[in-house]
Simulated scan of single mutants.
Amino acid sequence: MTIEKAAGAIADATPTWLSRSLNLLGVIVVAYYLALDFLHSVPVLVAVPAAASLLAWAAAAVLPGRYRAPLSVLLGTMVVGGSIAAVPTNGLAIVPATVAVLRLFAEPRRPIWHGAVGGLTAAACLAVAALVFPIPLLGLVAMEGGVLVAALAGISRRQFRTAEAQSRALLEERVAIQEEQAHGAALAERQRVAREIHDVLAHSLGGLVIQLDAVEALLEAGEAGAAFTRVRDARALAASGLSEARRAVDALRDDRPGEAVDGASIVRDLGDLAEAHRALGGRIDFTSSGAERPLPADEAQALVRAMQESLTNARKHAPGQPVAATLEWTPDSVSLVVSNPMVRPVDRGSADPQPGGHHGLEGMIERFDAVRSGSVTAGECDGDFVVRALVLRS
Rank of each mutant, 00 (worst) to 15 (best):
L171W: 13
A150S: 04
M143Y: 13
A236H: 11
A163G: 13
I112S: 07
G146Y: 01
A150T: 03
I210S: 12
E173C: 03
E164M: 07
I210Y: 01
E189S: 11
E216K: 04
A236V: 10
D199K: 06
G184N: 05
H198C: 07
G115M: 09
G225A: 06
R110A: 02
G154M: 00
R174H: 06
A239D: 11
D213V: 06
L152F: 12
A169N: 14
E216H: 02
L138E: 14
H198S: 11
I177F: 09
A238M: 06
G207V: 00
V193C: 10
R157Y: 09
I112N: 13
A185V: 14
A186C: 01
L237P: 03
H114Y: 02
R190F: 06
L219I: 00
L140C: 13
L148N: 01
C125N: 00
R190S: 11
V147W: 03
L137P: 00
P108T: 03
A165Q: 05
G115K: 06
V193R: 09
A129V: 01
A236K: 14
R158I: 07
A124R: 05
S240H: 13
D213G: 14
Q211I: 03
H183Q: 12
A165H: 07
R109A: 07
S243I: 12
V193D: 05
A151Q: 01
R174W: 13
A224F: 08
F228H: 05
A188Q: 15
G154E: 05
E216D: 08
H198K: 04
H183S: 11
Q166P: 07
A182Q: 02
E220R: 15
P134C: 04
A153D: 04
L126M: 03
L187C: 02
V193N: 10
G154K: 02
R195C: 09
R157F: 13
R174M: 09
E180I: 04
C125G: 01
A150P: 02
V209M: 08
S243T: 07
D233L: 14
D199C: 13
L137V: 13
Q178G: 07
L219S: 04
A150G: 00
A123I: 05
V117G: 03
S167G: 08
E173V: 12
R110S: 05
W113Q: 12
D199H: 14
L126A: 02
A151L: 03
H114G: 00
A217C: 08
Q181L: 15
R168G: 05
I177Q: 10
V149W: 01
I155F: 01
A127E: 07
R190G: 00
D199G: 10
C125F: 02
D233H: 10
G241R: 09
L187W: 06
C125D: 01
A182P: 00
G154I: 04
S167Q: 10
G206N: 03
G222C: 14
H203P: 05
V200N: 03
M143E: 15
E144P: 02
A226M: 09
G225K: 09
A127T: 12
L212K: 07
R190N: 12
I177S: 03
A194L: 02
Q159R: 12
R235H: 12
T121Y: 03
G207L: 06
A226L: 15
L148T: 10
R195T: 15
L131F: 00
L201Y: 07
F160K: 13
L242C: 10
S240C: 08
